[in-house]
Each structure stands twice: as C-alpha cells, then as structure tokens.
Write a protein that binds this DNA or RNA. Structure first.
Lengths: 356, 356
DNA sequence: TTGTAAGCGTTATCAT
DNA sequence: ATGATAACGCTTACAA
C-alpha cells in the first residue's frame, strides 16, 4: 500500500454527545470552557472530556468560525519569503502571535503584484480579522494601496511608510540610519567616502540618502558626486549583490579614489566587498565598508559586516500587537493606536570598518 | 479616527440572489462555474455576475468548506523559518501550489516539539487535506512521528528520511554528497583533509560521514582521527557557525596540520573560514574549505563557498506534487506514489577550494 | 444543571 | 433553465 492515502471520517460533536450521553450544547460548553460551564456538574464534564478524548474528537474550525463569526486568524502578506529581511519580521509576528489564540495565515506574493491581489482576496474570503503586510524593497507605493482601502480591516504595513487614515505602519528611521552610517565612517577619519544609493524609486533609498546628506552638511563634508552610484531598479531582492559588485567596479574604474564605502543595504555591501577583494584590495585594510539592515549573511561573512541594524523582529512584534489590539478590543479607545511608529536603527560594529 | 478599525458587514450569496432576482442556488452555480452552469441562460449569468461585482460579494470560505467538505489547503509544518534551508524548500512548495487551487497553511514550530504538536492539531482542525513537514536539522526521529501516524492524512516529510507505510519522504543523497565533497578535495591534490562532522544524533550527519569514509576506503586514503571533529548537539540552526569556529580553532591547535577542510554544512564551513582567517591563514590559499547545502550566505561571502548543493526548491516541489496527487486523484493507482525519493546533490565549485 | 432549536453561508439534490 | 430544501458541524439564546 502506498504511504499516501487517506479517508477522512471525522468525529463530530454529536458523536461525543451521544457517546457521553449528553446534548451537543453541553458538550460544546464543556469543551470550550464557556462561561456557562461553571454550572455543569464536575462528573458531567469528566464524562464528556473522556468521550471526546476516546473518540479523538477535533472541533471543525470551519463550522466553528461560521457560527461564531470569528476566524481567529490574521493574514500576513509578504513579498518574498527568501528575502531574509522578510523572514526576520515574520519571526517577530509569529512569536507575538504564539501567546494568543490567533493564527497567522502567511501568503507569499513572490514579488508579483498580481499574486498580491489574488492572495489578498483569498485572505478576505478566509475572513482574516486583521492584516499585516510586510513590504520589502520593491513594494511600490500607490497601486496596491487602493485595494487595501476597500477592505476595511485592521491593517499594518511594516517596512514601508504607507500610513493612511485606514492603515498603520511601522518603519525604521531611515534618515537616522543614513546619518549614523555616515557618522561612523567619518568618525573613523574617512574623508573620501563612496556611496552606493538604492534604486531611485525606492522610498527607503531617498530617506537614507537624506540622512547622509544631512550629516555631510552639518560637518562641512563635501559629497563628491564622482563617488556616488545609484543601484538600478530591480525585482529580485538579492539583485543588490550583483548591483553592489557592478557599482563598486565602476567606482574603482573612476578617477576618484575612496577609503570607505557606504552601501544601501547589506547585500549591496557584500557585493562591494566581493568587488574590492577581487580588485586586490583588502577590507577594511584598504577600504572600510558599511551596510544596512543586518541580515544574517552579514554576520556569517568574514570580515563580519559593520551595519546599521533594523530591529526587524521587533517591528514584526509591534505590528502584530497593533492588529491584535484592534481585533480584540471591541471598539475601545481607538485613539491609543498610533498610525505609524518609527523605530531607531542601531549601529552594529563588526570588522568591515576601521580607522583610516 | 484611528487607522485601525473595522466593522465587518459581509455581503452574502443571498444578497446577490435578491439583487439579481435569482435564487441562491443559481447564483452559486453561476459563480462557481459548476457543470450545471452550462444550462443557465447567458443573460442570467451576466446579471448575476454584475450583481456580485457591484455588491462586492466574496464567498465565505468557511461556509463553503463546511458544506462541500474540502478545505483546499495543505498544511506546511516547518521548524524554523529563519533557517535558510527551510526557506528555499518553502519556495518550492509555494511555487508548486501557485498553479493550483490549493493554499498552503504554514506553521512554524520555532524548534519546539511542543509547538509542533500544537500546530499539527490546529492544522487538523482546519481540515488540511495534506501535510508537508519540512524537517530541519534538529527534527529528532521517532517522537513526533507517532503523532503523525494517527492522523491518516497524505503526509510527506522533506529533508529527513522518515518513510513509513503512511508517510513519504524526499531527501537528498547524503552519502553521495559526502562522497562527492571528499572526491573534490582529493582530486585537487589534498591529502591532509580535516573533517567537521555534524552532531552525532543527526541522521544526515552519519550518512555524509559514511560517504566520506567510502571514498577514503576506495582510494586508500587514511582519515586521520586527529583531523576529525564532531559538532555538538544544538538547537539553534545557526549554531553551526559558532560550532565551525570552535571546531576549527581546536583543529588548528592540534598537532595535525591540514590543507583542506570538509565541513558538515555551509554555516559550519563559514565558521571554519572565520577561524582560519583569524588565525592568519587565507582561504583557499592556505586551506580549502567545502560546505554542504548551498544556502544563500554561501554565495554572498568572499570567497564564495564551494559546496554540495541540495536541490531544495525541487525537493519542495516534489513533495507538493505528491500530496497534490494524493489529494486530487480520488483513489487512483496509489502504487504510482513512491514512498521515498532520493535526489542527487550537486558539486558547486566557487572560490573556497583550490589545488593544493 | 442540562436540553431544544435556530441559524451561520454555502452547495448538492431533487423538483419544477 | 431555475428554484426549494436540506444539510455540513458548531454555538448560543432560551426553555425546562
């Protein structure tokens, strides 16, 4: 016989009722430990529980939800599960949900807008009570927002500021991050700093650049345009690596030399390191490199990558906390729910940066 | 007003029926494009569809599944979503499911047996039609199996051989992988090869070691025990990194020198490289290093890690294909479903290995 | 302290 | 070519 085969023959609450000799309602009340179960005789409870266990009774989530109008689920829409950035946020969401009766329904849009919409529809059909959207670096603002608005459902976007009157968001302070990265390099004595900016269309990209410029302005440091490159638009989140390699090679070919490189994100930084090493330079000996995010590979490489850490797990937790509050509290003080939270990034010094 | 707030007021099939002027049954038939819809007048269809669209009707998945006894979902039980090994398999599963009407319900056990069992129960309550278990490196055989047996549900385990009469599995050929890794190093001229084995309790670990020994025996190569280390048992899948660092440092302290190192997996290899570099050695100049798995960080580090690649996405696809077949085909030729499939690993040469 | 009955939104079966 | 009705398994008023 093949190992794969099944014939479902489920035990229902009626079976438990007849076996135990009580009515379905009593069984329901006992098994759910509903308020009314306080008035049920201890012996009755015992017999019911025994019958349920013996029969291997498992309540049908569909029937239950259909009846009481609660799905006890929150939808989690992500854009690419292979993106470590997503993964860590997911962990935060799951950890936060673990202690509740809520279940995440995770859907991965595979970086395709079409899928995003389809999955959103599926989540609605499954009557999720709240929605968390993990926006990765190619979530283009605007378009998808419209579809979200129609379903008035507690919604939190994490990783991108898309707050509206109906949607909350939790993001990292990209401006502060850019500022801090620049500050770190500058304070190590670097005065010839190359910058690889993120794709122009990307919101994060410009905010980080803003922070970089701000630091420069405050310290009378001239950002030489010859030392600045722009990552091309791209779909694949790991394309930052190749982008980093290419941008750095281009930088190396140019006339302007540099002793430090500030990359848009970790993958870009890792690509930069690859190019630097291949060109015969050492990191951080000949050139310091700093990234942004603190995705796992940043810690596993040698030298370990100095980076601006986003508290991704915490972001997931916060987002989850919000939707839970919106979902559980009936309509209590809505005002306590902030439309947007900006978390501080943190400088994480490893081995890829050093004094000039 | 706070952005988080909702008041669900769902449109039902009855609403569509009254608005369009037809009965719920006809609406159902039309909207589902059921066989009977062949006999429904074109104009009727049109009016019904228009009404549904205008009202924003969305069928209730709970009611539907309750009625027709099909959840159209498959449960996916993973052990750690932050483990890149898991992630890639998940991608395969999702991609394979995308083209079907099935939805994955993903649950992450966070490396805890307790959670595993709880989530398994939840999946059963949600009436998943099939189950895929992604076993990562700490899925201890035996224990959890028992719970799986009771629910006779098409089940496939990927990443660990747990085949029984009720469970299929898809795994990589670990013996061949170990053999190939050894062969690669040997063919580059290495004769002083250090080996960091995986935790003893881990099935994979011993199979890979078997392959290594087999190659050695066939080529009259002596595996010097002084050049062999064992990774400690551990919970965290990323602990391989620290384990690799520690084992390598220990190896370096010992009398026996080596020109190549074969690591249990990629993270271990990355840890080994870290230790090697810190000790002043270069990779692959002074020591070649080979890993196993081909997780993303292996490609982003410099030097890129030579490794034995597991076709993880394909494994996910195959597993999914099996449960789909078991689920969709009523009870057609069960015999075509193999109880276990062993995929060949592939040597992926990057820059961390070179001729001695 | 427990039972009865209605109904959640759908779809399958049977009528018309 | 379309409609009426029952039933999926559960919870919750309300009744006893």
């Amino acid at each position: 016989m093949s190992p794969l085969k099944a014939k479902s023959n489920h035990v229902t609450i009626v079976d438990v009722a007849t076996t135990s000799g009580f009515s379905p309602s009593t069984v329901s009340i006992v098994l759910n430990e509903a308020p009314l179960s306080r008035y049920v005789a201890a012996k009755t409870k015992e017999r019911i529980r025994k019958a349920a266990k013996d029969l291997g009774y498992r309540p049908d989530a569909f029937a239950r939800s259909l009846r009481n109008r609660r799905s006890h689920t929150v939808g989690v829409l992500i854009f690419d599960i292979s993106d470590p950035f997503c993964t860590l946020i997911l962990q935060g969401i799951e950890r936060c949900l673990d202690s509740t009766a809520y279940l995440p329904i995770i859907m991965d849009a595979h970086n395709e807008k079409k899928q995003f919409e389809g999955y959103l529809e599926m989540l609605m059909e499954r009557r999720v009570e709240g929605l968390i959207v993990v926006a990765n670096w190619l979530f283009e603002e605007g378009g998808l927002l419209l579809n979200l608005r129609r379903n008035n459902l507690p919604t939190v976007v994490v990783g991108r500021d898309l707050s509206t009157d109906l949607i909350s968001s939790v993001v990292v302070d990209n401006v502060a991050g850019g500022y801090t990265a620049m500050e770190h390099l500058y304070s190590l004595g670097h005065r010839k700093i190359a910058v690889i900016r993120g794709p122009e269309k990307l919101g994060d990209s410009n905010l980080r650049w803003q922070g970089i410029q701000q630091f420069a302005a405050e310290h009378n440091y001239q950002l030489d345009p010859r030392r600045v490159r722009l990552l091309p638009e791209a779909l694949d989140p790991t394309s930052g690596f190749e982008g980093g390699v290419a941008a750095t090679e281009d930088l190396l070919r140019s006339a302007a030399d540099f002793t430090a490189l500030l990359a848009f994100d970790d993958l870009t930084a890792l690509g930069a390191i690859r190019a630097l090493i291949l060109s015969g330079r050492s990191v951080p000996g000949d050139c310091s490199v700093i990234g942004f995010d603190d995705v796992p590979p940043a810690a596993f490489c040698t030298p370990g990558l100095t980076t601006i850490r986003q508290p991704m797990e915490e972001m997931g937790r916060i987002a989850t906390g919000w939707v839970l509050r919106a979902v559980q509290g009936p309509d209590t003080e809505d005002a306590i729910l902030p439309p947007m939270q900006i978390l501080s990034p943190q400088l994480l010094i490893r081995e890829s940066t050093s004094r000039v």
